[in-house]
């Protein structure tokens, strides 16, 4: 369960209402729900996803992620454990520059101290599914934008997250590949993962109908 009530966020410490990036956001998404996150550039989509990923904490309002109340007084170890259950595909991918594609994808499982045998099985399956087998030893700088994006997608889903946050996860992919990826994210939500996908791609939205969260200038308009 994801629940936000009256959440506000702005850059810097001082509240400056006119320039707040997110204003009075309230929403509730049940476990296993799928939501599109739509809105023009600069509306605050990435900021909202970063907030849900707890890369920043709300300046005001209440936030509940996967059943846990989040605030400035939350224990750091609690937040770390929650993050291990959240998959995030950043708009700028955020791959580990020193690691190969395979090691980047394996990272969440390594942090959970899974057995190496199990890890390589999961990694190989995803590499195969995303067409990255030949690039598995390459470093992020050696990859095309689409390859980087597919690596980021694989890293976000490999530990079967309870919450998946995807920030324009298909903008560097071909249409057919994009559709496959969104199809997989839909399947994940059918299996119980809550999925939120920010996108500009109207064709995809029409092809995979789902409730949408509309952001405009930091305000949320839900059309369900």
């Amino acid at each position: 369960m994801i629940r936000l009530r009256d959440v506000t966020w702005h850059h810097g410490a001082l509240p400056n209402e006119g320039q707040a990036t997110l204003r009075n956001i309230s929403l509730a998404i049940p476990q296993g729900g799928f939501r599109w996150l739509l809105g023009p550039s600069g509306a605050g989509k990435s900021t909202l996803l970063r907030l849900l990923h707890m890369e920043a904490l709300p300046r005001s309002g209440d936030m509940e992620i996967l059943g846990t109340e989040i605030g400035s007084r939350s224990k750091r170890s609690t937040l770390a454990r929650l993050r291990q259950r959240i998959g995030m595909i950043h708009q700028d991918f955020r791959l580990m520059p020193t690691l190969s594609v395979a090691d980047n994808i394996a990272l969440p499982l390594r942090l959970q101290k899974r057995m190496e045998g199990e890890i390589s099985q999961e990694v190989d399956a995803l590499l195969d599914w995303l067409g990255l087998v030949e690039r598995k030893k390459a470093r992020p700088v050696e990859l095309s934008g689409g390859e980087q994006q597919r690596t980021a997608i694989a890293r976000a889903v490999i530990m079967r997250p309870s919450l998946l946050l995807a920030d324009e996860p298909t903008n560097a992919l071909e249409d057919s590949q994009a559709a496959r990826v969104i199809g997989m994210l839909r399947e994940l939500s059918d299996l119980g993962t809550t999925v939120i996908v920010a996108t500009h791609n109207d064709t995809l939205v029409q092809r995979f109908p789902a409730p949408a969260l509309q952001l405009r200038q930091g305000r949320l308009f839900a059309d369900e």
Partner: peptide
């Protein structure tokens, strides 16, 4: 800095 931040976002604890 970048790697540490990414690890942190992937849920690595401070202790780790």
């Amino acid at each position: 800095r970048e790697s540490v931040t990414i690890l942190h976002e992937l849920g690595a604890s401070d202790g780790y």
